[in-house]
Write a protein that binds this DNA or RNA. Structure first.
Lengths: 155, 155
DNA sequence: AAGCATTGTTAGTCTAGGCTAACATCCGGG
DNA sequence: CCCGGATGTTAGCCTAGACTAACAATGCTT
């Protein structure tokens, strides 16, 4: 099985999101959400159906197969972690973070994502236990460019 | 001027690298480094020359215009920071880090990159001043999955 | 139950960016 | 000088993934 293209991953992700939001996914909704026209969606559904990632009955709904589910969930998970990193630690606006997570999510290997998740949890943990030191220092630094040495270091 | 595609950014980056490594960039070298055939390079050079990003004399060398330089340097900078983050903090192997930096570099906006650089410097600074606490804890965590609360917090 | 708006599908076209095969130019060695 | 191999270019083709225009199915509304 050939690796999925970024575009096809995006389709899966969108179907996944729609299914969770509205229960089902329809061609027109997918088109609208992805800002493409319905014939493009149609072609993509044919592609994904051929790979057994979706089921698309003529003039009917689109649903993910278990395989498609799994892939979509993996992409979604990357999206979510990236989004949280961008908003919580880089303080990017929600809209922009969402958009960028959407690009970056396709560029990251499983291996790297796995480590990044750990890294992220570590940061969050530090932010919690050292609160508000580490995070506040970072925030100050991001805003002012001034380095703040850790208080516990100076002590 | 239309935004550059990822592929064209890659061409610029490769020309930039070759120019620095060997002084000049030739079609065959670009092709080899990017693992494409020379007619593809040719088409890309025509594209980039039309945008005034490179100069490509017939049967001759390829050089970056000042504009091309600037763009290439920006891409390169993203690559470098990402590479360092991946190797130093996520402990990804040099080869894989290089490869992934190559994908991720195209997916990041100027805004986000800017903040990420600050974030990265902050991390490096913490790693230096708190050495070896923060980094060692992260390393332990990445390897074992065990969370380690900051020593200065427990004190 | 029929008609029409909505929705989905098909056919055909376009662009980016690959490729191969064939042709053109360049340059070093005889 | 000139010839052959290396290098560069052109022409023509392919695929992914978008689009428009035209056609088909569905289903709500009366």
């Amino acid at each position: 099985m050939q690796k999925l293209s970024e575009n096809m991953e995006d389709y899966l992700e969108t179907i996944h999101a729609l299914s969770r939001e509205k229960g089902v996914a329809r061609v027109s909704e997918i088109a609208e959400k992805m800002d493409v026209k319905s014939p493009s969606v149609n072609a993509a559904m044919k592609n994904l159906a051929d790979r057994d990632l979706v089921i698309h009955e003529k003039y009917g709904y689109v649903t993910l197969t278990p395989q498609g589910q799994k892939l979509a969930a993996a992409v979604q998970e990357k999206h979510d972690v990236l989004y949280r990193f961008l908003t919580e630690f880089l303080m990017i606006s929600p809209e922009q973070a969402d958009q960028e997570a959407c690009s970056i999510e396709h560029a990251i290997s499983e291996e790297t994502f796995d480590r990044f998740v750990k890294f992220f949890k570590f940061l969050e943990n530090s932010a919690r236990t050292q609160k508000p030191r580490l995070l506040r220092n970072l925030e100050t630094y991001l805003k002012t460019g001034k380095k703040v040495t850790c208080e516990c270091e100076r002590a």
